[in-house]
Amino acid sequence: MTQAIRAPLSAQVAGIGVLGPGLADWAQARAVLRDEQAYAAQPCVLPVPQILPPAERRRATAVIKLTLASGLEAVAAAGLKAAELATVFTSSGGDGRNCHEICAALASSDRLISPTRFHNSVHNAASGYWGIATGAMAPSAVLCAFDASFAAGLLDAMVQAAATSAPVLLLAYDTDYPEPLRQVRPIPDNFAVALALSPTAGGLARLAIDPAALFTAEPATCMDDAALEALRLAIPAARALPLLRALALGTPGRLVLDHLPGEQLALELSPC
């Protein structure tokens, strides 16, 4: 017998990490989202992941650098231990640049593919490098839901945090696509957001989802700033921006995040 779940699904945002064009970290993103600093769209700068052993550091792609930088920022802000945290990785597609190189090799005369490219081509590469870097042995889920990937990941992470009564780290990220792939998937730059979600009280804000009304046909909450709205629409992981703005401002209330057409994700934010 299936019993309807009536209690809201909730989690506390205990720490945030951000890395994207013109947004070097959560401190800068927070200042921009609070209108304390003008948004200047600069190409995303990816730090070298010093936490990785030398061999893995040499092979780290943009996907790895993005997730390590944003994820470790969120974990540190939350005062949690990365080695003990379950993770949910979510990305709208594959690693565009790595995919391009493999396609180029397959189109060449000898069709020999670089083993490093092949090893980096799996969708759970970011999760694997995270495990090597942090020593985390906790469960790790890796999702892909095209443009719905941020909302799908948030929902998955909140369900996990509630079901396991343990913190979960959500890492949502997308990397740019080179030509000619960019013609069909025009993601212009890298963007990642990481949220450390805790089932217990404390942190910056409480997020709640009503299981009886998960989805809505209402349009997604937009950004007032034209450049930030352009960023939200250009990179799927940046669909998190309206949530990040509400977290930066401490604005209570309802948010609608882009998910699937006619099935957007509705959630309530209550600042702590």
Partner: peptide
């Protein structure tokens, strides 16, 4: 040099090509 098996495969590929 501290290389591992993936590195050796990578070298083999590059030199073969």
């Amino acid at each position: 040099l501290g290389l591992d098996s993936i590195d050796i495969l990578e070298i083999a590929l590059v030199l073969s090509k």
